[in-house]
Design a protein around this nucleic acid. Sequence first.
DNA 1: ATGTCATCGTGTGTATACGAACGATATGGG
DNA 2: CCCATATCGTTCGTATACACACGATGACAT
Lengths: 157, 157
Amino acid sequence: MRSNVAKKQLESKTTSSVASRPYRIEEQVGYLLRRAHQRASAIFQVGIGDPNITPTQYSSMVKLNEYKELSQNLLGRLVGMDKATMQGVVRRLKERGLVDSRPDPGDARRTLLSLTTEGNRLVAKLLLNGPAVSRETLKPLTQQEQRQLLDLLSKIA
Amino acid sequence: MRSNVAKKQLESKTTSSVASRPYRIEEQVGYLLRRAHQRASAIFQVGIGDPNITPTQYSSMVKLNEYKELSQNLLGRLVGMDKATMQGVVRRLKERGLVDSRPDPGDARRTLLSLTTEGNRLVAKLLLNGPAVSRETLKPLTQQEQRQLLDLLSKIA
DNA sequence: ATGTCATCGTGTGTATACGAACGATATGGG
DNA sequence: CCCATATCGTTCGTATACACACGATGACAT
């Protein structure tokens, strides 16, 4: 009998729980992550303090504020963006005078990025609103649930 | 002294926890949701069984499979997509012969959508892989953590 | 019946997001 | 030194994602 249990788990059960629950799209992680991300982005847009700054632009500027100077590729890795995506983000930030670039003197393949004075001023202002945006996004949860969610997301991200 | 503590909490503390933690972009919900969603999408792409089907196309087809026929707008609400986004998704599915449309006889504003025979065949095949995709995405978590995450995401989505 | 307001689908513009291909440059082994 | 390989940034193509404006249609009150 025990071997039957083991065998059953090896068979192509669609869920690993004992009772195979119906497959509902609204209960799948990917779907829920997409919806949650949509809501977080919407809250960010109205709460960060500048309607023209997107979440990815914000995280890029925060990282540049932290490191002073970074190659475009390394910045992309730090904020989790494809190099093609990074290229567009950086181009727009440069067009708005928030970011400056110069060739890396030690490696001609690299472009070094840094915040301009205006970029520094803007990110300082946005950073004041950052915590409120996160708080608003987590508002439906209790303190304990908020910590749990951040913990679980860190594990699967 | 007690009044000082109370006062401190009323002052513009950036986090509501007792000790104000440094603001790290990697610990913010929005950032973690973006990264987790990226990973989920990557797993979907390799695991769903058809590299040309995206997560949103998949959820649209699953819903059409469930309801047989839906107006474009209602489908968008059911899967959490803007009507402009929905328009593009539907157009591509129609171009590939997976979805059909006809004017709603009772309301000339509406377009009724349904799966074609080929669409039905495809979604049936993809649905076999759906559970494995979700399982793989949740793999870093224990059973209990998986349930917790789905629960917490439902609350904030 | 008419006018107001809402809804539906479309089109446009902007911004991620990523695979793929490309040229320029760097690195390490022979 | 030279060649194979890897890295860096760019470009192209495709696909969400959403705000906004538009025209057509429906619903409803007067």
